[in-house]
Design a protein around this nucleic acid. Structure first.
Length: 472
DNA sequence: ATCGGCTCGCGCAA
DNA sequence: TGCGCGAAGCCGAT
């Protein structure tokens, strides 16, 4: 049975940010003489339904200081590309428009070189009273926040705006969706009372706005802005921008069309590429352009919401649970025992053909279904959900070792997928190798007891004629 | 089109 | 200790 959640109207709500979501990243004091509260926006890149922003507003009210929202985009992280940059830049334009209308000040910053931006956070911190940032338990973000916490002299808090369940609610690592679902049924009602504000910027105090002179020197050294020539940046230009427009505005229009046109068909048709019943929200969730709370707020009254809510909450937050509590979430060794054992028993099985990473990247296999899925990924930054599973299973079949399959899946997914570098991407990739799954008979070459999938069965089972034509 | 068999760890009931 | 059951499996029998 799915996870069934109540309509929000039936939930009594409070506005304070729950302490479970707040973590002190260092033991430094608040600087009462600081000129502003600094919100360092790194994952929840939005101005609505954002506990971290709410927390920053709480500080601004308490200290009666202005709020500075600093949203940086680095160039030096792995997989930085035109595609990822364009999506984040789209989001910055929306954030700029929203913050312009408020009492807060916006400081978007796009690094022009790999070293550009070094020292900027510290420079801002030296003028600030307290820093609030986002807690995102994946990719390079936890390391970056920990390093920053050491470097600054004031209190740095990170706030978890990831899910309906705060990641700190439990230390338990769930091995199955079923177990997690059972846990959520009991636990989630306790957390639905705390919702982030729909319009937190309206709650800012009347405090004097930030004086332009305060940031004069800093602005001179690190010019703010989000209008930038992508070709001039030291990022991967092989991965072109997606046709998909990023940002909170686009995110809400996708949510609107999903609610109006696709949700009612979602349960029945989500697996069929030709049906176009997917939500399309995953890229926006990844970059924080929309939140699970905002989505739940919009859909909670719908009677046909359960199948989607199970994806959005049970499956999505299962991945956050893993990344938060198992720092080795991206390692082969984090697979369940039975999976490692059965894959090891078949290490010596012959594989043919095998493909190189770049042959796969360029869709140069013999398999038309697989090539289509990979082409969709490479061109759009997305891949139909059922095909993602088949995509991974075939990579396992076509590589020399399951560890190479894992490396290739991570590389291709993080390079091309807008929603790569995210807990859910790792769940999907590791599911291919047995995580959250069970053994399946009969034992097969290469796979052992790992669930086996084939392109022929997929073709029989799914409506994908148009999809194949489109990506041929 | 639908069904059973394949297989095993987890979590709950007893 | 036993038992039901699990993200979307595959295959062959009916």
């Amino acid at each position: 049975m799915e996870l069934v959640l109540p309509p929000l109207a039936r939930v009594q709500k409070t506005l304070a940010v729950p302490t479970l979501r707040i973590r002190e990243e260092n033991r430094n004091p608040v600087n009462e003489r600081g000129e502003f509260v600094l919100y360092w926006m790194i994952a929840s890149r939005r101005t609505q339904d954002n506990f971290a922003l709410d927390r920053a507003v709480e500080w601004a009210v308490e200290l009666d200081k202005p709020l500075l929202i600093f949203e940086p985009l680095r160039a030096d992280y792995r997989w930085a590309s035109d595609r990822i940059h364009q999506f984040v830049l789209d989001g910055m334009a929306d954030n700029s428009a929203a913050i312009e209308k408020s009492r807060a000040t916006y400081y978007p910053f796009v690094a022009r070189s790999k070293k550009d931006g070094k020292g900027l956070l510290k420079a801002l911190a030296d003028k600030a009273a307290v820093i609030v940032t986002d807690h995102f338990p994946c990719f390079f973000l936890p390391r970056m926040v920990a390093a920053a916490a050491k470097k600054v002299d004031i209190l740095l808090e990170s706030v978890d705006s990831n899910g309906l369940l705060p990641v700190a609610a439990t230390d338990q690592i769930f091995k199955t969706a079923r177990g997690f679902r059972t846990y959520l049924r009991n636990e989630l009602p306790k957390h639905l009372h705390s919702f982030p504000r729909e319009k937190p910027l309206l709650s800012l105090p009347r405090a004097q706005e930030l004086k332009t002179s305060t940031l004069k020197v800093i602005r001179a050294e690190w010019p703010p802005g989000f209008e930038v020539e992508l070709s001039a940046l030291p990022i991967d230009h092989r991965v072109p921008p997606s046709e998909l427009h990023g940002g909170a505005r686009a995110a809400h229009s996708v949510l609107k069309s999903f609610a109006a046109e696709r949700l009612e068909r979602y349960d029945e048709e989500r697996n069929h590429p030709d049906a176009g019943a997917a939500s399309g929200l995953s890229p926006y969730l990844h970059f924080g352009h929309i939140s699970v709370h905002g989505i739940y707020r919009k859909l909670s009254e719908r009677e046909d919401k359960d199948a989607f809510i199970d994806e959005l909450v049970t499956w999505r937050e299962l991945g956050f649970n893993m990344c938060e509590h198992n720092p080795r979430y991206a390692r082969y060794e984090s697979l369940p025992e039975w999976a490692q054992k059965t894959l090891a028993a078949h290490e010596g099985d012959p594989r043919h053909p095998t493909y190189s990473l770049e042959e796969l990247a360029e869709s140069k296999t013999y398999d038309e279904v697989w090539n289509a899925a990979q082409r969709e990924l490479a061109v759009t930054g997305r891949m139909q959900n059922y095909l993602r599973m088949l995509w991974g299973k075939k990579i396992l079949e076509w590589t020399r070792h399951p560890k190479e399959a894992l490396d290739f899946m991570i590389e291709l997914n993080n390079r091309y997928a807008l929603d790569g570098r995210n807990p859910n991407s790792y769940s999907g990739i590791f599911w291919v190798l047995g995580r959250y799954d069970r053994p399946w008979a009969p034992q097969r070459p290469i796979f052992g007891a790992i669930r086996y999938m084939t392109s022929n069965s997929t073709k029989k089972k799914l409506k994908l004629r148009n999809y194949l034509k489109r990506w041929a």
